[in-house]
Design a protein around this nucleic acid. Structure first.
Lengths: 235, 235
DNA sequence: TAAATAGTGTCTGTAAGACATTATTCG
DNA sequence: CGAATAATGTCTTACAGACACTATTTA
């Protein structure tokens, strides 16, 4: 009965975001097949419904990143499902479950396969299909969640200083913030916290026993426990 | 090439929420087909990829509601795409694009086809497939968005009093709030606003020239302009 | 000690929440 | 006028934001 209807094509796309030199960038590659051959596109792929390891579409997204970019993202979430018969006229009605992934650029540099390159999200060329809309919505989602959560932590290495974290927030929003204000928002009193303990009662950040020293007073390194939401928005 | 892979089944489900006697309810019907015959389920259906009117999956969701419940919702948004080979063992790997719809109960009563019935979301029986998870996420989404937006307005008739709106917010959160606090949060000064004008600079609510009088001082009726976001969360 | 950045303390203005008061209808 | 609910005003407290100050390292 349910097989009476022809099925639409189902694929998964991933908007992989990272910070390069202080600006948000997205991973794109040049399509080698038609349609839109020669145009920049997001990593994506079909669902392997016969592969027992592919338990759901999230597993598909992880496989796409593993096969095409060569790594496991520290953060991945479903963005939205894009659909319609105009997305790819050669295939008719198609459905694409779009995802957002965040990876620190250090990890991406280490892989560096040369197939994917990073483009500033504020200065994109023409993209294939509706991929420009997907990037746009992914950046919106990141900006929005950044205003009330610890999501930007996943654009940094596992351990980071509070100043590094503040800079990431500022870069995402394009606005500066006073250091005192930033820290009081996190509810942080760094000095009377022991390594391994959470910095605040909400357990947003965990202090490590490591410090990052440059040519001045060293800064304590922190880790993020899990994605935490703030009671009040930042900006 | 892309047709080398077998395609998963794609369907659309709708979590239709409404307020019945002050409590959130969801529309469910008893399945008449296997699998899960006799179990309560959400309205849903396959995509009609050959129907030119079905431009995308949102159109599919609207058609499902039109055909199965008999009306056009005042609010509809995509929730999340559920997928996997365990959802419906008889069909293998399936994909369902879940939606949330809000309708004032007055409209639903007027239709009343007898096929769908409303169950309190806080006291659900066993549902078919992963529909319980879909309802749970839909309610979470509503509670979350209610805390920083005018979304609850779509559970009320087109025109409503501020007290009615406050009660809806309180019912969604399960907490009471002082009347003065509620109104100052909306930035509302009712009396010096002319009908048709927005009540606040953010144009969240628009005053009508109508009043709803009971056995006491009549309350001004308002309409909502569009979905608006607050700068600060409510609760 | 000078430079540089890390981290904290203090003050002020704004706004949320509690509570009291006024306004407008009906009977 | 009393009852009932609408709508607003006032006071207190909490917190965001600005700014200045102290702390700890290297050179």
């Amino acid at each position: 009965m349910s097989d009476a209807y022809p099925k639409p094509d189902v694929s998964v796309d991933v908007v992989l975001l990272t910070l390069v030199e202080g600006k948000l960038h997205v991973a794109l590659h040049v399509r080698t097949k038609r349609p839109d051959k020669g145009t920049l596109a997001l990593p994506g792929g079909q669902v392997h419904v016969d592969d027992d390891d592919e338990v759901d579409l999230e597993a598909t997204a992880y496989r796409v990143l593993r096969e095409k970019v060569g790594l496991v993202p520290r953060y991945l979430e479903q963005l939205r499902t894009f659909s319609g018969r105009e997305r790819d006229p050669t295939r008719g009605f198609t459905v694409s479950i779009s995802h957002v992934a965040l990876i620190p650029y250090e990890e991406l540099k280490a892989v560096g396969d040369g197939v994917f390159h990073f483009y500033s999200v504020d200065d994109l060329p023409r993209l294939a299909f509706d991929h420009a809309a997907q990037v746009s919505e992914a950046v919106q989602r990141l900006r929005n969640k950044a205003s009330y959560s610890t999501l930007p932590c996943w654009l940094l290495p596992e351990a980071f200083t509070l100043t590094q974290l503040q800079v990431v927030y500022e870069q995402i929003f394009g606005e500066t913030v006073k250091r005192g204000t930033f820290r009081s928002r996190l509810g942080i009193k760094v000095q009377d916290v022991r390594p391994g303990e959470a910095v605040d009662e909400a357990e947003i950040l965990v202090a490590t026993d490591q410090f990052q020293g440059g040519k001045q007073r060293p800064a304590r390194l922190f880790k993020v426990n899990r994605l935490s939401l703030f009671r009040r928005a930042f900006w």
